[in-house]
Amino acid sequence: MANEKRKNDENTPAENAVGPAFALIGIGLIFLLNLDFWPWILIVAAGAATAGLILRGELTWWHLDGVVWLLGLFVIALTGFWWPGILLLVGVSMLLKAVIGTHTISTYMDERHKRKRGFVPPTDDDRFF
């Protein structure tokens, strides 16, 4: 039973280990280089999330939006320009959402979003009234 794969677990252990491994390396570098923890942990979180998503081929707009926000907050925290910076970050986020929409960035997600038990995930073509 221990060797049985869970029904919803489609990723290999190597694909699942990339994000946490990247996070541990990043946190180790923060302490090794004696950097301030606060803004740099945002870069570590963005890098860990992005590395795992790219390796698994699951990078969509919703994931990219989180990475954009983490990187934007890092720049804002590093420079100290919170008031104009947050407006720019919201604008960039809205612009990317308008350009990319809900389209997947990788083709892997197209295969994973096939109809399951009657559920159809929303796309740009669906109209909700």
Rank of each mutant, 00 (worst) to 15 (best):
F129V: 07
P121F: 04
A21D: 07
D65G: 04
S93P: 05
V99K: 01
E58A: 12
W38P: 08
F37C: 06
V67K: 01
Y108E: 12
D36E: 14
K114G: 13
S93C: 13
G19V: 15
W83T: 03
L29W: 02
I86P: 03
A49C: 09
D110K: 02
G80F: 08
I105L: 15
G118E: 02
L53G: 15
P13H: 09
V120H: 11
G28H: 10
S106W: 04
R6S: 15
G57T: 07
R117N: 06
L29I: 01
G80N: 07
T12A: 13
V68T: 02
P20W: 12
M1P: 08
T12W: 15
W69Y: 09
I54H: 08
W62T: 13
G91S: 13
S106H: 05
G26W: 02
V18L: 15
L71K: 01
L70W: 03
L32K: 04
M1Y: 05
F74I: 00
K97Y: 13
V92C: 05
F81M: 04
L59M: 14
R115A: 15
S106T: 06
F31W: 01
W38G: 13
F119K: 12
T79K: 04
T50W: 04
V92P: 00
N11F: 09
A77F: 07
G91Y: 10
N16I: 08
G72H: 05
N16S: 07
E10R: 08
D36R: 09
A49H: 13
E4K: 06
M94L: 07
H113I: 13
I86N: 07
I105Q: 02
G101I: 05
L70T: 03
I30R: 00
V90H: 01
W82P: 06
K7Y: 14
I76Q: 00
K5L: 04
V90D: 04
P84N: 00
R117F: 07
G91D: 06
L88A: 12
V67A: 09
G91W: 03
R117I: 03
T60S: 14
F81P: 01
W83R: 08
M109W: 05
G26H: 03
L71F: 04
S93F: 10
